[in-house]
Design a protein around this nucleic acid. Structure first.
Lengths: 257, 257
DNA sequence: CACCCGCGTTGATGCAGATCAAATCAGTAG
DNA sequence: CTACTGATTTGATCTGCATCAACGCGGGTG
């Protein structure tokens, strides 16, 4: 089962416009776009140097399976560019996405031999991989890494719990609104503001359904309804803008701003 | 909002048979029932001593609110005895339980001022509390605590993801079966085996519904059905035994054993 | 004992969203 | 240009679970 992690030829630009790094040049950690958000965020220059020695870049095309459930975990990794999904599957084929991995998110867990879900590249993806064993050793000796990893795990736990409320109690409409609001928030992080500004929908209807615990037909209908209500507006299938941010929030069912 | 964490008079034995610790005697960490599973699991004797200096025990009666959403986090804590729940509430009253806290589980997160969900004592509960500030300081200087906390956070994250599959994709019947299987697994941890052995249902129908993203009526009906099918058998409302472990597992929808 | 009150069960009904089915659209290969 | 393929939309129908409603049970209290 192990070893299905395959390095792939790098292309200059990803399919959905995510700029890919040129792996030939082995970029320095100090110039890495996720330097201050990833697992290495708290590391000082010395510690960064140790990480640099055990890191490798790997790239995947949209749709590629990055890890299979039950795979031996030879590597752990940070997402450098692109979007990947964590998913669970039942034997009869029902699936549920349990996480979206965006740049700086971490894949794998130290101290465990295998992972219990599938990781799939949603767009073209570039990973910064570390051999698990030396990485685990580094954790023991480098508190900054363990601390940051803990912080990230706790953040993800909070996010997972929000998602549990969504999956367990929200209506289809609230799910869609919450999802779009999340996209807005995440994509505004870099650029910020302007009520209607073009945003990217990184997932297909099917993937959205999978993420929200719905069917793709329901997703399509709800998006259609919000289009008709002039809450959102589509440029094409993957590009849209929010025209009524307030109505969107109202539809999400969340109280806090 | 802060400060609603109230110490309560200790009683010798909890309402559902959980033996309560005698707090007057200030038990030593080295004799603590969760010494090897809680956040202190990896600590050596010296480190334990430091924890012992900042710890306080607090007890709550079944039904008491331990923390309110948005509360200032003066303390973080480990559950020593009893069961508590983590829950989220929407403004219109819909609620979703997002976690069950059993002995050794950790409450609160270092590095954050407030928590984003309610904590309620399901049974009588005893907590081992640490003032947050000194605890955070301890984390900086004591890698064993940060490492253990990370490990626990990652374990909870795995559990949360399993629960997301349950909430998003499983049928009412599968949810109930999965829940009971979980109870079996957790309660067997201590005693182990025997196909039918008396188990405790620590939650009311309402709480189970809340945990599984169902209504209490549906929970009642599904439990009734499994009773009729002779998969489970109830001694009284809170005590039961599993008579057909295999059928139970089959009904859970999980593939792995 | 009679009275509640919280909890649980059981029944009848309604509806949100799943399922089934078919048409449209966009991109791609021939 | 045409055919084909996969993604999306739209419509019709079905169903699992929620909702509404009534009732039973057990334990505590006056």
């Amino acid at each position: 089962m192990a070893g299905r992690v395959l390095a792939m030829v790098i292309r200059a630009v990803g399919r959905y416009g995510c700029a890919m790094l040129d792996l030939q040049s082995r970029p320095k950690c100090s110039e890495c776009p996720i330097r201050h958000r990833a697992v290495c965020a708290r590391c000082d220059d010395d510690e960064l140097l140790m990480l640099e020695q055990i890191k490798t870049y790997k790239s995947f095309r949209a749709g590629d399976q990055v890890l299979w459930r039950g795979d031996g975990l030879t590597y752990v990794a940070s997402v450098v560019a692109g979007v990947a999904s964590l998913g669970k599957t039942m034997e009869d084929g029902r699936t549920q996405m349990v996480g979206l991995l965006l740049p700086s998110d971490f894949i794998g867990r130290p101290g465990r031999e295998a992972i219990d879900f599938d990781v799939v590249a949603v767009t073209d993806v570039t990973l910064c991989c570390f051999h698990r064993k030396p990485f685990e050793a580094l954790i023991e000796t480098t508190p900054h890494i363990a601390q940051r990893l803990m912080e990230m795990a706790l953040d993800e736990l909070d996010a997972a719990r929000d998602w549990m409320l969504l999956l367990g109690r929200k209506t289809a409409r609230e799910k869609i609104a919450t999802f779009i609001e999340m996209l807005v928030r995440r994509q505004r992080l870099t650029i910020d503001d302007a009520t209607d500004q073009e945003l990217v929908l990184p997932l297909t209807r099917h993937e959205i359904a999978n993420y929200l615990g719905l069917t793709l037909e329901t997703v399509s209908r709800q998006l259609g309804a919000m289009k008709k209500e002039r809450i959102v507006q589509f440029v094409d299938r993957r590009r849209f803008r929010v025209t009524d941010l307030e109505a969107l929030h109202l539809a999400s069912g969340d109280d806090c701003p």
